[in-house]
Design a protein around this nucleic acid. Structure first.
Lengths: 341, 341
DNA sequence: TTGAAAGCGATACCAT
DNA sequence: ATGGTATCGCTTTCAA
């Protein structure tokens, strides 16, 4: 059995309360005694028992606030399942998860929800933030007031947030470039499709993709990337137009939503199977198109982990003082074909 | 806050002891009272608190035995890290992990270690078993005597084990076929390399690969698969010989160990980069060869999960009675290039 | 500055 | 058949 507070107390000839004060620097203790206790604990390799700790904290539960966005999208459904799993897990340790969400993304609403959660007394916040200077400032305020913040899915640089959980979008773009280049024999003509100009991850996916292509696979020619507003109809039009303008098109790289439109466009012009398609996210429509060979590869960014981990990171930090090893918790860049979904 | 035994007891007008007996069918209770208590618990959605349960069980800790094999290999090092992580986690819940391991694989030693662990009073066993009829019988004996068994990395069919944690090797082979076919333009000449004749996973990886190629990519020609005994020197010889016999070789599929030999053979004959290579496992040598482009893609089978999950599955079963959802816990068939390691 | 004790949720044993 | 109580490891008051 592992060593307990009680054993340390007996060895040190003091009470458990004193050991507790010593190990957690709660003050009101003789510094020499504290030092002696700490050295004994260290020697014995004391590790606090999580179950005992959890039970004792049941009277003052940790409250973790979560603010999600765009909950109407299939990707966010998967992410929310991760949040729910984490909620269940930490609830066994006397922690509560206060979840707020919104359709689409509204910076003012997000700021209001933060105030609301602070009002309710949260001890930590996980948020998929809007990229805005007001949000940046608010996050720093929170951290300064002792409420740690973890960003997920979307990050805000230059804040004192504890960490970010999500994909390394630029690297994902590079992985796609190498993969796509490999399956077209390292030459051909490729159309990169982005979503919104202000969507940071789309931009990075395109940037990583294009720079990798240009640097490492110069025989692959890139058309100028286009914006599709994550819209199926628009991607279909863009696809068909591009095919008419460039009958020698080899592949399409979709860094955004609207993937189904690409498949439809290719199908309408009889190019399914001859033009390669790589896109993102293991969502139902994409899975369908992967299985019927309209999409060659999908890049998954593990939505579940993006919901699950922020809460677990905050919990470990608040519960046991564990700081994340890095400020970036990058989710797997998973390459999926129809066999390894 | 979640509902507790105490609350149920008060509502039912009985003591906590009685509620406990009712919910866990411990007997010595009036059936009608038990029924009433159960219905109240159900209505309130009672979920036992894991922390409380853990603490109470500290007096009679759960003992989980683990028997690993081939611990000298880099793959098994990764797997053992998973075992260690699981051990740490369950030790907070008053559970102990008794680990036994061996170099290579020795059926007699495994049987002896099982006896030893049973002697020590284990409540459950995780094992990477030798495929032998004596092992099959012993596993069934254990299960019959009330000790649940989880197999990992290697499975034994037709036993009453709780579940298997590891890769679906045949499916992995299929995934490789599709991937390899894609990067050679769906045509060419491919050499499949297996390891040992009696290694079940190698056989399945080859079987899945070849059958998928033949069915779905008939323009890819397959050389007869060869056995390399997981040996670098042998794979190098086989590679060089094949290249001399078939200068038009397009790709090599390595389902076994000895991957470095393949890379060396290709390098020696100046074929690095022109002959594609796909092999298994994210181990240091392979990572190196992936990064310097001697290997095109690696298939990872998540060694960490193969060590971590068996213990967690046994723990959840013994601790909370949770049965795994399926008898097969397949680890991810992860496709890795140099960007998503 | 320190000790003693109550309590968190569940289990198990001893009384009744 | 049922109730009462000690206990697990830890936190947090309340006394001293």
């Amino acid at each position: 059995m592992a060593v307990t507070l009680k054993q340390i107390a007996e060895l040190a000839g003091v009470s458990r309360g004193t050991v507790d004060r010593a190990l957690y620097n709660r003050g009101r203790i003789n510094p020499e005694v504290a030092e002696r206790i700490r050295s004994i604990a260290k020697e014995l390799g004391y590790q606090p028992n999580r179950a005992g700790k959890a039970l004792a904290m049941a009277k003052h539960p940790i409250k973790i606030g979560v603010i999600a966005q765009a909950t109407e999208t299939p990707f966010m459904h998967l992410l929310q399942a991760g949040i729910e799993d984490a909620r269940k897990e930490v609830s066994n340790f006397g922690a509560e998860v206060l979840m707020r969400s919104m359709i689409g993304l509204d910076i003012d609403l997000q700021l209001k929800l933060i105030d609301e959660l602070v009002e309710e007394g949260i001890n930590g916040l996980a948020i998929a933030p809007a990229d805005d200077v007001r949000m940046r400032n608010r996050i720093n305020e929170l951290v300064d007031s002792g409420i740690p913040v973890v960003t997920f899915n979307a990050d805000i640089d230059d804040t004192r947030r504890l960490c970010f959980v999500g994909q390394n979008s630029e690297l994902a773009g590079r992985a796609c470039a190498a993969l796509l280049s490999a399956i077209i024999g390292n030459k051909g003509l490729v159309l990169p499709i982005s979503g919104h100009q202000y969507n940071h991850s789309h931009t990075l996916r395109i940037k990583g993709f294009c720079s990798e292509m240009e640097n490492c696979f110069p025989e692959v020619k890139l058309l100028p990337s286009v914006f599709c507003q994550d819209d199926d109809t628009l991607t279909q039009q863009l696809t068909e137009q591009t095919l008419r303008d460039h009958p020698d098109l080899t592949a399409i790289y979709v860094a955004a939503g609207g993937q189904s439109g690409v498949c439809r466009g290719l199908a309408r012009l009889g190019c399914t199977g001859s033009v390669r398609v790589i896109c993102y996210d293991l969502i139902p429509n994409n899975i369908k198109n992967l299985l019927n060979s309209r999409i060659d590869f999908l890049i998954d960014q593990d939505a579940h982990t993006q919901g699950y981990q922020p809460i677990m990171i905050l919990f470990d930090y608040l519960f046991a003082g564990t700081k994340p090893e890095s400020k970036y918790f990058y989710t797997d860049i998973a390459i999926k074909n129809k066999y390894n979904i």
